[in-house]
Design a protein around this nucleic acid. Structure first.
Lengths: 352, 352
DNA sequence: TTTGTATACTTAACCGGTTTAGTAATTCGG
DNA sequence: CCGAATTACTAAACCGGTTAAGTATACAAA
């Protein structure tokens, strides 16, 4: 059996307290005793049990990331990876580990319940969500990414509505009138009250506003909204379906506007397979500006949002909350980062 | 203050034990008592402290991934992301969370010491590594990925030597004789004994064997080995430096053989910047076959190794060890997955 | 009526550390 | 030489749960 502090104490002929001091605060005991204790520690290969320590110190040295999907699926979206990398920056700075918490028993809240973390970051959880309630009960500080800016929660996000507006305005400005919008999927739909996809709604609102300026709407003929999983595969599948079902073909969309670059790059795959040229035959626009967007062929038109910074900002806020920043001002607790429309070569005026 | 089980017990007029039963094994108490206890639980917003529970149950419900670099850097390599996704498959299946453990205080072992996990997966740690010793002391089952197949450790990997040989043989077969090898960097180099990069050595051995068949070696004129960070940026920087320092230019390499696809794609960037065409002016080969390798322009020649499967296999082994599989056969504990040379369009015969 | 056996609950020990409060011995100031 | 302060250490409480062992009551069987 693995040795405990008690074993060390007995063998060294001292109390548990003395062993604890030797390990954590050697200045409090004599040089001689210290050496004796440490000799036994080495002899028995003693390593303190971090869980037991936590019970009293109440610090785990870990941040958590609550995911709305299984890890495998979530990481399929490079944008999520960017967010994690941002959180990673703070982990390095503060010597923390990062725990990814996928839904358990199909529920996000179940993961939150079991989380061994000092603080949490959530993606896309609304302020009225049951998870918020639970975390407050557990007294675990948390920050939402892409949530909602209310008094109730600390949030980091962007102006999704405005960003979406600018993207759609660009596409409409090129002359497109038959457009397929590839929308984010509500990731976890086990229970109706788990309402993710605030982001989805806000971006749809932005698209609508741009369309409205031309007297159009998301329901107009030629305009359609199709859900797609946030991955290359998801985009590929959705666009393949759209192209296959467009009959007659001259009523097919002339532009694809995706809510994630990964989905847009999936559209590239679908086009390649059926021999459509981008942007000559079909314009494609994305959202996020993931690292591979600029290097794609053709380079992808998209809205840049700073994924790493989002993650880093959220983690920084969690750490601030942990450091006792209960009295932080509202504006210090709500960060809205900038977005930028990046026009590259995947969008052009329609042929006809 | 957050309520504890004691508070619930007092308020409900029962013992702590009864509360514990109500929460974990309701069948053991009467319907009536159960309701009374749960009413108080709801009233006081009680959520059990998972850390305290762990002290006796000894199950955290978490796997750990020991990273040789900070999270931010590690995730820059899509291949690492694939491995994580593989681990994620098992996490979903077994309802586990996944903790990423970057080095702490510059040392991997320090992260291993503090890890709150049931089992660990390490990347690239050798069997003689101090981390191995520590984990044995802590009685934490662990599996290495890309480590070494010895009795001492449970490992999942591929035949790196053979894979590297086939890749180099392909490049040499096309006629290339001036080749730059972009090698993995020893990730953590705080201490000399933290010897990562077993993979690097084995792949170099494979390259050497292929070269030796033509009477060449890694030290021959025209052949050079340059370290590059495992990321697009790292590959870009390394290749830019190589191209800039090749004077006269007609002694520049005609082929780049990278040990990671991310690095090879970085070479694409460098070539694009200086106007070199791939493969006309320069052949580029990678290693891993990350998801974007096939979609790159031109599609990347590489050696496929199954990243997701590696992660999934490692996680499956950890879980088996956790389930008490101490008596598993050696072959059951060492998995060697297949690789495959994938020839695409980024390699061709040299011009001259 | 006695014995045996569920049932429903409690007491107390335990997990493995940290920390508070306290004791004994030594040093120091006046 | 006495009281105060310091040093070195320990006993016991504590963190917040789980669980083995034990008790009291009700009910069934002998």
């Amino acid at each position: 059996m693995r040795p405990t502090i008690k074993d060390i104490a007995e063998r060294a002929g001292v109390s548990k307290t003395t062993v604890s001091f030797a390990l954590n605060d050697p200045g409090r005991i004599s040089e001689e005793t210290y050496k004796r204790v440490m000799a036994v520690v080495t002899e028995l290969d003693y390593v303190p049990n971090p869980v037991a320590r936590t019970l009293t110190t109440k610090r785990l040295g870990a941040l958590g990331l609550l995911l709305p999907q299984p890890i495998t699926e979530a990481l399929r979206n490079p944008y999520v990876v960017e967010i994690i990398r941002g959180i990673g920056e703070l982990c390095a700075e503060r010597e923390l580990s990062l725990t990814m918490l996928p839904p358990m028993r199909g529920r996000v809240i179940e993961a939150a319940r079991r989380a061994f973390v000092d603080g949490l970051i959530t993606i896309g959880v609304g302020p009225d969500h049951e998870v918020v309630e639970l975390l407050n009960k557990r007294h675990i500080p948390f920050v939402t990414i892409d949530g909602v800016d209310t008094e109730a929660t600390v949030n980091v996000g962007v102006d999704d509505e405005a960003a979406a507006y600018s993207l759609m305005a660009h596409v409409l400005g090129l002359g497109h009138r038959r457009i397929a919008v590839l929308a984010l999927m509500p990731e976890t739909i086990k229970l109706p009250e788990e309402r993710y996809s605030l982001v989805r709604d806000r971006r749809l609102a932005g698209f609508s506003r741009a369309l409205a300026e031309l007297g159009l709407s998301l329901g107009s003929p030629g305009i359609c909204v199709v859900p797609a999983e946030s991955s290359i595969e998801g985009g590929d599948a959705a666009v393949s379906a759209i192209l296959a079902s467009s009959s007659p073909p001259d009523l097919a969309p002339t532009a694809i506007v995706a809510m994630a670059d990964a989905v847009a790059l999936g559209a590239y795959e679908a086009c390649r397979r059926v021999g459509l040229a981008i942007p000559a035959d079909l314009s494609v626009a994305g959202f996020d500006d993931i690292p591979t967007a600029a290097g794609a062929m053709p380079p992808l038109t998209t809205v840049r949002q700073p994924g790493r910074e989002k993650g880093a900002a959220a983690a920084a806020l969690v750490v601030e909350l942990l450091d006792g920043g209960d009295d932080l001002a509202h504006e210090a607790l709500h960060r809205r980062l900038d977005t930028e429309l990046v026009i590259r070569q995947s969008t052009a005026a329609p042929k006809d």
